[in-house]
Write a protein that binds this DNA or RNA. Structure first.
Lengths: 187, 187
DNA sequence: CGCCCCATGTAAGACGTTACATGATTGA
DNA sequence: TCAATCATGTAACGTCTTACATGGGGCG
């Protein structure tokens, strides 16, 4: 398998293209108008990213001549691109994922059902739940150590992190229940 | 005023140095052992950052000869550095802050009390609260639009974002109450 | 005609990552 | 003496940001 690293923006693009083949301009509009991970809508980020993905064989662009407007290139996922997307979505959540990029986990989950099916969504959620449970005691312990030495605003900020983690865990369980409840309705 | 942009890591360093003058190695250990924003502990990030900050006149390093070990350079904030740190902390929270970097707001708050005093901490919290309140309706509206068209995992992921925002707002109010309750005890 | 929207790109620079290099001291 | 730890740094590389460039089409 091609193991070149793909940045978060790359996966966002792959996920969007899987949903609907689009041009670079279309993608820019999506990034500009929605709070999808809040990636930049700047051409200097998106067009080079598309070039990289095409060079890696994960997407393929075809020029659309039909309409009267200027040349428009529509990109589609290749088989390899779909495989890379699925691989990214289905791999288990690690402690590292948790500490460095919760938003990226959410991006993975957002694309999971349409790309890999509801079973993969649930698997990702369960992986996230257990990673959170494993991570939580260490967080609490660091908090206890901090509370005695840090200024008030320091431990309060840490408290915010703990609350957000608890909130995330509650959401995870809620999402799992949502899937279990009406288990039908796969796309 | 010197308006060169300072990246998030730069402010993290300024805040830590304000708390306690340290060497690059000390800072690396702090980043490696605590979950302070989860910055990298790699020398390739920290030493260049220290050089930049010194070039900008925000910190000054003095070589410590005393102990038998290898040359150690201890960095301290300059007056300009303290001013830059205060300026960063006391500026109001914008919608842009909210969308792109909640962790950075938390870093600002964590350093606020020790750097600019409890009054600045409360001001930052109040600014955050009003920014969150202003941002919330738009979030909800986007959610309503999404719910009808996106796959389940898509709107569930968005729901997570909403819950986290609510959680952050609750924490903000809790933190404000904490300050109001025993208003004494400034550092 | 001038202006804005569509649509694509490039160039320069900043920042972080990974990996490597260096050298001194302490302890087995 | 060999390894680990303290302590600092550099080099190559990839990616993102900001700003600029280009060019067709519709509209007033």
């Amino acid at each position: 398998m091609n193991t070149a690293k793909i940045p978060s923006l790359g996966y966002a693009i792959l996920g969007l293209l899987h949903g609907k083949p689009s041009s670079g301009y279309d993608l820019r509009k999506i990034f500009a108008s929605t709070s999808l991970g809040t990636y930049s809508d700047s051409p200097g980020a998106i067009y080079p990213a598309l070039q990289r993905l095409e060079r890696q064989g994960l997407i393929r662009g075809t020029i659309e001549e039909s309409s009267g407007l200027r040349r428009r290139q529509i990109f589609r996922l290749t088989r390899e691109g779909l495989a890379a997307l699925k691989h990214w979505i289905t791999r288990p959540v690690t402690r590292d994922d948790l500490e460095h990029s919760t938003p990226e986990i959410m991006l993975r989950f957002a694309f999971s059902e349409g790309t890999a099916g509801a079973a993969a969504s649930v698997a990702l959620l369960e992986s996230l739940e257990s990673a959170l449970q494993a991570h939580f005691p260490a967080l609490k312990k660091e908090y206890e150590g901090l509370k005695s030495v840090a200024p008030r605003s320091g431990w309060l900020a840490f408290d915010c992190g703990i609350r957000q983690t608890e909130c995330l865990l509650r959401w995870t369980r809620h999402a799992i229940r949502t899937y279990r409840h009406h288990k039908g309705g796969m796309s």
